[in-house]
Design a protein around this nucleic acid. Structure first.
Ligand SMILES: [Zn+2]
Ligand SMILES: [Zn+2]
Ligand SMILES: [Zn+2]
Ligand SMILES: [Zn+2]
Lengths: 175, 175
DNA sequence: GCCCTGCCTGTTACAGTGTAACGCTCGGCG
DNA sequence: CGCCGAGCGTTACACTGTAACAGGCAGGGC
């Protein structure tokens, strides 16, 4: 979906934590490699099901529901149940390889190599359904300050913005 | 639940958008009054079901699921279906009287009188389940800046932080 | 009064999301 | 070999949310 945008302009774009929507084979290979390294280092099992689940999520250009993933993983005669997908997704989300979009009950591949402390901001387009993951140290700082003020000890953060992405704005203005 | 905290110390607390968890009858009456004013001004219908739904959500000290609300609204011989509750909740959330907690599929009363432009930050305690709604102009600014940088036009925002509230931290450390 | 219309609600049916529980397999280990 | 733990298949089930249709009820025009 959405032709163009092949990537490599990434380093010179001047944006901060912004990763441009980078799905497709390239990002998939990156993510799989990252998963294998992680499993190696921590003594975890990056099983075939987990790898295939990660691949399906990474290939798709938009958030996928668990049942959609299950369907894509199924082949005639060998059906993958959603519950298995949920377990694989548990693993993948726990280790930051995919993210859950709470407002959509769906999952997207991680577009950054951020650690557990760094939380992401998800920009969800209402028109094309794409999700862009960005990191902003400034937002983290404001959040931390507010949380400290409230005496609240954060464990996980969800920041999801729904709206219209740049591409769709141009599309609807210009025609 | 959770004794103490009767409120009125609100104006002198020095916090910014922080409302302390204010449930109970007082906040309920405030919310109902606000809803009646709003319906009056905009020519909307603040029906019995909508009022009762708002009251149930406001009385509870924690996020309530739609089916929980339906159960509380039901009396022997007169059952309220969840679908009716959803419609009432649609009305209430559209007009900012209650908020949906996406990460919990649950609803809480609005603790502020904020307009549609001002978005809230929800602090969700994993121990006691309470939800505190705070407003931070600083976070809004950082978000706006990041969104502008990404060329993204926001329509609605979800910021939910899971962790441990101040009360529960004290409880687990000291007691 | 009567009809028409719009909004709200009741009811049924159903799709989508997520988890509990049980049992099997496989690989490592004594 | 038996034991054990992790992953996975399978079933069953609970929870969340919506579509579609029918009835009630108020307001407005006739
Ligand atoms: Zn990420
Ligand atoms: Zn778009
Ligand atoms: Zn609010
Ligand atoms: Zn708490």
């Amino acid at each position: 979906m959405e032709a163009g945008k092949r990537m490599d302009e990434h380093e010179t774009c001047g944006h901060h934590g912004h990763a441009h929507d980078a799905h497709g084979p390239a990002r998939t290979a990156d993510l799989v490699a990252r998963a294998e390294r992680l499993a190696q280092d921590l003594g975890l099992q990056f099983t075939a099901l987990r790898r295939r689940t990660l691949e399906v999520v990474a290939e798709e250009g938009r958030p996928l529901g668990a049942y959609d993933i299950a369907e894509r993983l199924s082949v005639p005669g060998k059906r993958v149940a959603a519950v298995s997908v949920y377990r694989a997704l548990d693993f993948l989300t726990e280790h930051g390889l995919v993210h859950r979009i709470a407002s959509r009950n769906a999952f997207v591949p991680c577009e950054h190599g951020h650690g557990a402390g760094e939380s992401a901001v998800f920009l969800i387009c209402r028109s094309c359904g794409s999700v862009d993951e960005t990191i902003s140290a400034e937002i983290e700082r404001s959040l931390d300050r507010t949380l400290a003020e409230a005496g609240f000890k954060p464990a996980s953060r969800i920041v999801e913005i729904e709206g219209e992405c740049g591409a769709c704005q141009g599309r609807s203005e210009a025609g």
